[in-house]
């Protein structure tokens, strides 16, 4: 069902080196519009590096990479206008109120005052967080903050939203709600590119790409991968791939 949709991310032979260390080794993949694309891997597998390159935060060593139709070498500002990003580390302003954070990021992405107001209300109502609208972020729990960070990332209705381990340190109920938000965003046509190392979350993705030591070891739908390795959960798929790697070494 994804075949008819255009590609919004096209990666060909992406290589990223830090000195002798190869963080991303010849990655090639496409992500289609509206897709929920999971980027899985152990800590240090190179997920975050690849994501930062796609967001225009770092330059690749080599490779042809297009995001939202723009080239990551020369058109990073155009890419940035079209993407949303949620960092691994909470990075909204803790000393500003919820509303002020929405206002600031809405303004930065060029939304009008009216749009900012409407969308802020929309998200706060949806998250049932209207009562903390005027609280500074420092004072509210992490799970709520993560949901707010996601809302800020999609506030300007980007083509693609990048989520770097968005549910780290969050309780299971909030994680569940978080994935509901992700589905909603995807339904609205926003492509979701998400990294995680929770394998149960991988089951929620349309397609996953498993990275081991900077390389792509497997890429398909979760059910196809489970069939291929004849297991019942993504967790087992991942362990197989990671174990294969360690016995090779």
């Amino acid at each position: 069902m994804t075949t008819n949709r255009p590609n919004v991310i096209e990666v060909r032979n992406l290589v990223k080196k830090f000195g002798d260390f190869i963080a991303n080794d010849n990655l090639t993949f496409d992500v289609k519009q509206g897709e929920i694309f999971g980027f899985l891997g152990a800590n240090g597998a190179g997920k975050t590096t690849a994501m930062k390159i796609l967001c225009g935060l770092q330059a690749p060593t080599s490779g042809d990479i297009k995001v939202a139709g723009f080239d990551v070498y020369h058109q990073t500002n155009k890419i940035k206008q079209n993407i949303g990003y949620m960092s691994q580390r909470f990075s909204l302003y803790e000393d500003l109120t919820v509303k002020q954070n929405f206002q600031f990021y809405g303004g930065i992405y060029g939304l009008s005052g009216k749009q900012i107001k409407e969308r802020t209300e929309y998200f706060l109502n949806k998250l049932e967080l209207s009562h903390v609208a005027n609280k500074i972020l420092k004072e509210i729990p992490l799970g709520w903050k993560q949901k707010l960070a996601f809302s800020v990332a999609v506030l300007h209705h980007p083509k693609i939203v990048f989520l770097d381990e968005p549910t780290g340190g969050v309780d299971p109920i909030t994680r569940r709600q978080f994935w509901e938000m992700i589905y909603e965003a995807a339904n609205e046509g926003i492509t979701v590119f998400v990294t995680t190392h929770y394998m149960d979350e991988a089951e929620y993705c349309e397609r996953v790409c498993i990275m081991v030591d900077g390389r792509i070891e497997a890429m398909d739908t979760p059910s196809a991968l489970k069939n291929k390795y004849e297991v019942t959960s993504m967790n087992e798929v991942f362990i197989r791939l990671a174990r294969a790697q360690s016995t090779e070494q």
């Binding site: 935060l57 960092s87 992405y109």
Partner: peptide, 14 residues
């Protein structure tokens, strides 16, 4: 230090 710059850096701020 706080990491907030990362969020700024992905925006189209010139």
């Amino acid at each position: 230090e706080l990491g907030t710059i990362e969020q700024i850096n992905v925006t189209p701020i010139k």
